[in-house]
Amino acid sequence: MALNTPQITPTKKITVRAIGEELPRGDYQRCPQCDMLFSLPEINSHQSAYCPRCQAKIRDGRDWSLTRLAAMAFTMLLLMPFAWGEPLLHIWLLGIRIDANVMQGIWQMTKQGDAITGSMVFFCVIGAPLILVTSIAYLWFGNRLGMNLRPVLLMLERLKEWVMLDIYLVGIGVASIKVQDYAHIQAGVGLFSFVALVILTTVTLSHLNVEELWERFYPQRPATRRDEKLRVCLGCHFTGYPDQRGRCPRCHIPLRLRRRHSLQKCWAALLASIVLLLPANLLPISIIYLNGGRQEDTILSGIMSLASSNIAVAGIVFIASILVPFTKVIVMFTLLLSIHFKCQQGLRTRILLLRMVTWIGRWSMLDLFVISLTMSLINRDQILAFTMGPAAFYFGAAVILTILAVEWLDSRLLWDAHESGNARFDD
């Protein structure tokens, strides 16, 4: 018995066209964080690309023209004298008006014999932002004059995390709450300039795509075929072959399989920071003279006294001054041990922890910024005066060393310790 099946006739004509040209192939790229070699397709503007294995951002879609970056830099340069030299806060102490600005706080630190601690604050609040705007201006002028731009481009990517104007702005709020127990506070004209400078700096850093600047100024022929001998440069993120001198053909720094002496430098910085954190938390970090009496505060006791007036601000200072430094030390110690013992479990967790400490590390400088600003506000000789204690130097040095330890660690070593050939990683 035959089955009668109805015929289905399409209502619209289906047209099949042959592909007349070869589909576009992607360029081969190595991930600078996990060293995976993959094919990167062509990316349009405002599109980002991520590593298929570790999800690290390979290409950032946010990109401004150099002219727009230069305009932002010149605007920031105009704001800087007002943000640093004009009063941020006014207080009335014992019937006398006192003005506080950024430069005055750094000068008070240096004047009291601790120039190293003052230079830490100076670099993060004044030096690094000033280098940022002058570097962008150098790129703008240098591109037109045919100057060598490689050193500036190499420095810009590392400079971003040292620009800490946003953290200093939080420190202004913390210092205001600490001082309000002794005097009446009012915002100064410099505060508005400083807030504007923070906003412009944040926007500029978020749109400063150094890798795209490398592509514009020093374009290189990408690798179009897969080759395990391809290496990625950690300076400019170019994937290719080393030249005859073993250097990256684009930025001219040595092109090595792994960062040289990464573990040794990381261990040295980490152990030194552990040693410095002990006096930083045991010795007094601030000293207040009130009517001839002397009151010393460690980091913890200062947080407890701050909690009596504002528990939320005390929580912020606790996280930045105690929780973050010790968390960074514990995480980095764990990561280094996992590399030495070739741990194969929990790779995803370790990668996330490394990215976390990379982002939060700079916030530990908050305590030094609060001390710097408070020193310029309260300084009335023996009637009422505020000065920093010996722990300030140890704390600042420990924070900087932990930042350097994270920067010096080559994250690809975590993958080397893991089993080879993993296309995915999980716990």
Rank of each mutant, 00 (worst) to 15 (best):
Asn4Gly: 14
Pro6Trp: 07
Thr9Pro: 12
Glu22Asn: 11
Gly26Ala: 08
Tyr28Lys: 13
Gln29Thr: 14
Cys31Asn: 00
Pro32Ala: 11
Leu37Cys: 13
Phe38Ile: 08
Ser39Lys: 08
Pro41Ala: 11
Tyr50Thr: 11
Pro52Ser: 11
Arg53Tyr: 11
Gln55Phe: 11
Ala56His: 12
Lys57Val: 13
Ile58Thr: 06
Arg59Met: 07
Arg62Lys: 06
Asp63Arg: 15
Arg68Asp: 03
Ala70Trp: 15
Met72His: 02
Met72Gln: 11
Ala73Met: 14
Phe82Asp: 05
Phe82Ser: 06
Trp84Pro: 06
Glu86Leu: 02
Leu88Pro: 02
Leu89Lys: 05
Leu89Val: 14
Leu89Arg: 06
Leu89Gly: 03
His90Lys: 11
Trp92Met: 03
Leu94Cys: 03
Leu94Ala: 02
Leu94Gly: 02
Ile96Met: 14
Gly105Trp: 01
Met109Gln: 04
Gly113Ala: 13
Ala115Gln: 07
Ser119Arg: 01
Phe122Pro: 00
Phe123Ala: 00
Pro129Ile: 05
Val133Lys: 03
Val133Gly: 01
Thr134Ile: 12
Ala137Trp: 14
Tyr138Ser: 05
Trp140Gln: 13
Trp140Leu: 14
Phe141His: 00
Asn143Thr: 14
Arg144Thr: 13
Gly146Trp: 02
Leu154Trp: 01
Leu154Asp: 02
Leu156Met: 07
Glu157Asp: 07
Glu157Pro: 15
Val163Ala: 07
Met164Ala: 03
Ile167Asp: 02
Ser176Arg: 03
Lys178Pro: 01
Asp181Lys: 02
Tyr182Phe: 11
His184Cys: 04
Gly190Glu: 02
Val195Met: 09
Leu197Tyr: 12
Leu197Asp: 02
Leu200Trp: 13
Thr204Phe: 05
Glu211Ala: 15
Trp214Phe: 13
Tyr218Ala: 05
Arg221Val: 06
Arg231Leu: 06
Val232His: 08
Cys236Thr: 00
Phe238Trp: 06
Gly240Ala: 07
Pro242Thr: 14
Asp243Arg: 04
Arg245Asp: 07
Cys248Gln: 00
Pro249Arg: 12
His252Lys: 03
His252Phe: 02
His252Asp: 03
Trp267Ala: 09
Ala269Ser: 08
Leu271Val: 09
Leu271Cys: 14
Ile274Cys: 05
Val275Lys: 05
Leu276Arg: 00
Asn281Met: 05
Leu282Phe: 08
Ile288Met: 02
Tyr289Ala: 01
Leu290Phe: 04
Gly293Val: 07
Arg294Pro: 02
Arg294Leu: 10
Glu296Ser: 07
Glu296Met: 07
Leu300Cys: 08
Gly302Gln: 00
Leu306Val: 08
Ser308Cys: 05
Ser308Phe: 09
Ser309Cys: 07
Asn310Leu: 04
Ala312Ser: 13
Ala320Pro: 01
Ile330Pro: 01
Val331Ile: 14
Leu335Glu: 10
Ser338Gln: 14
Ser338Ile: 15
Lys342Gly: 10
Gln345Ala: 13
Leu347Thr: 09
Arg348Ala: 12
Thr349Gly: 13
Leu352Arg: 13
Leu352Pro: 07
Leu353Asp: 01
Arg355Gly: 12
Arg355Tyr: 14
Thr358Pro: 05
Ile360Pro: 00
Arg362Gln: 07
Trp363Lys: 04
Met365Asp: 04
Phe369Arg: 00
Leu377Ser: 02
Asn379Thr: 07
Arg380Gln: 01
Gln382Gly: 09
Ile383Asp: 01
Ala385Arg: 06
Ala385Gln: 08
Ala385Asp: 05
Pro390Asn: 00
Ala391Lys: 00
Gly396Arg: 00
Gly396Leu: 01
Val399Met: 10
Val399Gln: 09
Ile400Lys: 04
Leu404Arg: 03
Glu407Pro: 03
Leu413Ile: 13
Trp415Asn: 09
Ala417Asp: 09
His418Ala: 04
Phe425Val: 12
Asp426Tyr: 12
